[in-house]
Design a protein around this nucleic acid. Structure first.
Lengths: 218, 218
DNA sequence: ATAATTGTTTAGAGCGGTCTAAAAATAAGC
DNA sequence: GCTTATTTTTAGACCGCTCTAAACAATTAT
C-alpha cells in the first residue's frame, strides 16, 4: 500500500527532476514539500526501500520506472479533476489547484476511467498542461519560458509554471490566458523585465512573470 | 482542524446513535470502526475535548450540536457524490460506497455547492437515503424494515441498511430496487423468513434481508 | 590543501492513531 | 448481596511523519 505522503513526495520528485529522471537534491525536495531536509531524507529512504526511487547517500534522488508510473498516474488524476472542476463546476483556473490536490489521491480505477470518458478524453488541463493517457503516455509540448523567448518573435501562451492564485489572477487582470498571442518586443538586460505586445497593447512584465509563463512559437 | 479519522468516528457515532442523539457504547463504536475498544476510548476523549461529543466515563458517547453539524455535512457530501457516480459516471449502486467514502472527506465548500447544483439539487441518494440540504436539513422518511411490515399490506422500497456489495447484488438479482412495489404475503414465525410478492412473482426472503430492506406504505 | 561553508544524514523526541495487556467499573447470575 | 462476567479505561509500546540538534560529507574559498 502506498501512502498519501509517499504519493506527494513522488509527485514532487517527478516535477523537480524533469519527469523524475534527473536527480533531485534533498534540500530542493524538502523545500518543495514544505518540510525539513531530515524529513525528506527519511522519506527518500522509504521510497528507495519500496522501489519507487533510486538513492545513494549524498547523491540525491530520482524515480524508478515504478515511481514514474505512480507519478504519472497522480498527474493524470490531478489534471482530469481540474478539467472537471472548470468545465462542469464553474471553477476558474486559479481555484482548481487546491481541490485537485485532494482529489488526485482518490483510489478507484473505474472512477478515473469514467471521469475521463465523461469529460470526453481531454488532452490538456486548464493550465495548458498535457494529460497523460491511461497508458501514461505524455504528449510533450515544445515550450519555452517567456524569459527565454526571442525578441521580435510571436508566441502563443501554452502554460504556466507557478500556479499560485496570485499569479493566475495577475494573468487574468492582464488578459493573458491559454492561447493568447504574445509578441516579444524587448528584453531589458538590466533587470530582465520584458516588454510584450498583447492584442495591440504593450505591457511590461517582470522577470518573475517571464520565468513562469510558457510559450510556443506561433 | 478536524482530522480524517475524527470525521469517520463522528459519522459512526451519528449512524449508530440515531442521528447522534442516542448514546453509543464504546464497544459498538469500536466494532463499527473496525478497531479495538481502547482506540475508541482514546478517540472519544479527543472528540469530547474538541467539543464534538458528550462523554462521561463508562456512560457511552453522543454528539454535541457541533458534532452533529459535522456528521450531517459529511453525509451530505457522501450522498451527493453517490448521486454523481451513479448519474454521471455509470456506477451501479453497489459500486459507489467505497469511492464515496473517500470523496466525502474532500474539503471545499465551493466544490460541494457546485456539485449539488450540477446534479440539480437531488433529494435522495441511489440507496434511497435523503440528502441533507446546505443548512443540514433532513427530510425524514417514514420507513419500516420489511421485518416489521404487516402481512397483506403493499409497500414501496425506499432504502437499504446494509449496503454491502453482496446484499446489493442480491437485490439486483431478485429485481428489487428503489421504488419496487412489494406486497408482504406471509411472515413465517418459525425462522422469521418472509414471503413477498414482487411484480406478480412470489419470493421467499430470509430474516437478514428483512432487517436490511426499508419500505414505506404504498 | 586546509579552512570555512553548505548540504545531507543520523539520533532522539513528539504527535496522531493504533495495538496488547492489565486494571477498574458496571452489569449479570445465583 | 456477593461473585462472576462483561465492558470500559488506563498504561505502555509501535508506526508514520514530523521536528531540532548534532554529526558527517561535499563543495567552495583563499
Amino acid at each position: 500500500m502506498i501512502t498519501l505522503t509517499e504519493e506527494n513526495y513522488i509527485k514532487a520528485i517527478f516535477h523537480l527532476g524533469k519527469q523524475g529522471s534527473v536527480t533531485v537534491s534533498t534540500n530542493a525536495l524538502a523545500e518543495a514539500m514544505n518540510t525539513k531536509a531530515s524529513s525528506a531524507t527519511d522519506m527518500i529512504k522509504k521510497l528507495a526501500e519500496k522501489n519507487y526511487a533510486n538513492y545513494k547517500k549524498y547523491q540525491g534522488v530520482s524515480l524508478t520506472a515504478d515511481g514514474k508510473r505512480v507519478a504519472v498516474n497522480i498527474i493524470r488524476k490531478h489534471r482530469l479533476w481540474e478539467v472537471f472542476l472548470v468545465d462542469k463546476l464553474n471553477f476558474t483556473w486559479d481555484q482548481v489547484h487546491d481541490v485537485a490536490e485532494q482529489l488526485e489521491h482518490i483510489k478507484s480505477q473505474k472512477l478515473i476511467d469514467e471521469l475521463d470518458a465523461f469529460l470526453d478524453f481531454p488532452t490538456h488541463d486548464p493550465h495548458g498542461d498535457p494529460i497523460p493517457d491511461k497508458q501514461g503516455k505524455f504528449e510533450h509540448v515544445e515550450k519555452t519560458s517567456l524569459s527565454n523567448a526571442k525578441e521580435g518573435v510571436s508566441y502563443v501562451c501554452v502554460g504556466v509554471n507557478d500556479s499560485s492564485v496570485d499569479f493566475l489572477k495577475y494573468l487574468d487582470n492582464n488578459a493573458i490566458a491559454l492561447g493568447t498571442v504574445i509578441k516579444v518586443l524587448h528584453k531589458e538586460p538590466f533587470d530582465h523585465s520584458i516588454k510584450i505586445k498583447i492584442d495591440g497593447k504593450e505591457l511590461m512584465v517582470s522577470q518573475t512573470v517571464g520565468k513562469n509563463l510558457f510559450l510556443k512559437e506561433a
